[in-house]
């Protein structure tokens, strides 16, 4: 703090500090604390707010625990997000490895461009693309019918659609960190392992993956967080049977009209994400500074 003042002088330093304080306190901490406050109070009509019933309790959280449908949707969101994360990882890892270790300079440059361009396109639009492809009378069904692979059109919308759309949406978040991590692995290490006669899978398992663990952790953390908090893909590509936890939260706010319960649900989602972040960082023994790059 003293260094800040020494370096920038009183006016600038104060200005910077005020900006940062407004951001961290006013835009990060206060909203979350207020949400917690909301989550702990009952939903009351304005007249009775501050009255005797307006006391702290865990009722809103208990509601989630006891409401079977919501609870199921919550756990489904968790495992589905985990599945999205795993699938994205499996899809991305070979590409990341190829880009980092095998691709020529020109190939790499094209590959990066090809990856970054779709990422720059709006998530809603990307999802819209899948919406069209997966439509009941859409091109995917048409092609599969034409090839005789299926007899009748398939309703892709639902779990499968959501999975396809989400994996697609978060590829880059998984790919880039892993690519960066593998890139710093010396080719000689892989060659040395190969010289020792290690089979391919073993080289990856024992050499590449341990080296890239920070990147993998980062990719997984972000993908999980984005998937669990996703709203677009389930809303557009899902079916009534594949509701996502975020949709329930949305309903509490804009249809159920119970913000307090919605706040509690949102906090549960937040807690889930933070838990996943912490556990992943712990498992991979990575620290936060390596994650946010």
């Amino acid at each position: 703090m003293r260094e800040l003042f020494q370096r920038f002088g009183g006016w600038l330093a104060s200005f910077f500090l005020i900006l940062v304080a407004i951001w961290l306190v006013g835009m990060v901490l206060a909203p979350n604390l207020m949400t917690l406050d909301y989550a702990l109070r009952p939903n009351l009509p304005p007249a009775r707010i501050g009255g005797p019933e307006d006391s702290y309790s865990l009722a809103n959280f208990a509601y989630l625990a006891n409401e079977a449908v919501h609870r199921t949707i919550f756990f489904k969101t968790v495992w589905a997000s985990a599945l999205v994360t795993l699938t994205t990882f499996v899809v991305c890892y070979p590409i990341a490895f190829w880009m980092a270790q095998r691709a020529t300079r020109a190939q790499l440059s094209i590959a990066l461009m090809a990856l970054i361009v779709p990422f720059f396109v709006n998530e809603v639009l990307r999802t819209l693309g899948w919406y069209i492809i997966l439509a009941y009378r859409g091109p995917l069904n048409a092609v599969l019918l034409g090839l005789g692979i299926i007899e009748r059109p398939v309703r892709w919308q639902g779990d499968l659609g959501v999975l396809a759309g989400m994996v697609y949406a978060y590829i880059l978040f998984m790919l880039l960190p892993i690519y960066n991590a593998i890139e710093s692995l010396e080719k000689a290490q892989i060659e040395a392992a190969r010289d020792l006669g290690a089979p391919v899978w073993r080289i990856h398992w024992r050499v590449v993956i341990p080296h890239a663990k920070a990147g993998i952790a980062t990719g997984c953390v972000f993908t999980f967080m984005l998937a669990a908090g996703s709203y677009v893909a389930p809303a557009l590509l899902g079916s009534p049977g594949s509701r996502w936890f975020t949709e329930i939260i949305y309903n509490w706010f804009f249809e159920g009209g119970d913000w307090n319960r919605g706040a509690a649900y949102a906090l549960v989602l937040l807690a889930l994400c933070l838990l996943v972040v912490l556990v992943t960082l712990r498992i991979f023994r990575v620290n936060l500074a390596d994650v946010a790059k």
Partner: peptide, 13 residues
């Protein structure tokens, strides 16, 4: 690391 919906909700509240 906070889901976007949570940020929106917290600000709204």
């Amino acid at each position: 690391l906070t889901p976007g919906v949570v940020i929106g909700i917290a600000t709204l509240i």
